[in-house]
Amino acid sequence: MQIEFQTSVGRKRKNNQDTVGVYQNKKDITLAIVADGMGGHQAGDTASYLAVTGLGEVWEETMLTQKDEVCEWLVSHIQEENTRIFDKGSSHPEMFGMGTTIVSTVLLEKELILAHVGDSRAYIVRNQEIKQLTEDHSLVNELIKTGEISVEMAQNHPKKNILVRSIGVPGEVEVDISLINCQEKDIILLCSDGLTNMLSNEDIKLIMSNGKSLKSRVNELVEKANEAGGTDNITVLLIDFDDELQEDTP
């Protein structure tokens, strides 16, 4: 298994509110996280950083290896980060209302445990096909599900960036948990919407399946998103379940 990631400020923003991290616990079980912060000034930076490092640092001290325990841990600790971020925003006027999305995965051999809140996404590429593994917690997705707008209309909807679920809200936040059985040739993508707002699923699939090294594919996804406009911060994390290391041909 290989993991590579990269984050970019993009071409329109002055600062990067995305945070990405990869952590191992005491049993060498990997937790990978992407968070996309929201809020004025540097509040979004703070929210995403708190969520990722808060989860990661606690994970490093655990010895969890069992699926049920990991699922429970993810939900409870994302809830704790939600409270911590809300409390910090409430006590610092310059950070009031800050929040973040989060998409995270724990890798248990060939099984993937996903936990997410917001519209940062996880995808899988298998047998030359791409599938979104997470559901956006956004207003436009709710409108799509009720049939009020089409998927095509959602692409340029004026309220596209409004979330119905995020980290940093009062009370409890609902955390989506899903389990994915992975195969040797699978590639998993975690990303912020700075990638998916710029590139289609087909564009992403072609890059993820091009046979280049994992690092080259991460770089190319970020580069193509910037070439397409780079209107937001862009974060890409790829997990390759192929046991053979890939090298780029000269």
Rank of each mutant, 00 (worst) to 15 (best):
I3C: 02
I3D: 03
G10E: 01
N15H: 12
Q17W: 12
G21S: 03
Y23A: 00
K26Y: 01
K26G: 07
K27M: 12
I29G: 05
I29L: 11
A32H: 05
I33F: 02
G37N: 00
G39I: 11
G40P: 03
G44R: 02
T46D: 13
E61Y: 12
T62Q: 03
L64W: 06
D68N: 15
V70H: 03
W73G: 06
S76D: 13
E80C: 01
T83D: 14
R84A: 15
K88N: 09
G97D: 00
M98R: 10
V103S: 01
V103Y: 02
L108A: 06
E109M: 10
E111G: 03
H116C: 00
G118N: 05
S120R: 03
R121I: 06
R126P: 05
E129I: 10
D136N: 08
T146R: 11
P158K: 00
I162H: 08
L163Q: 00
V173R: 07
D176E: 14
C191T: 10
M198D: 07
I204F: 08
L206D: 14
G211N: 10
K215C: 05
N233W: 10
L237T: 04
D240W: 04
F241H: 07
D242Q: 11
D243K: 13
L245I: 12
L245V: 09
Q246V: 15
Q246E: 14
T249C: 09
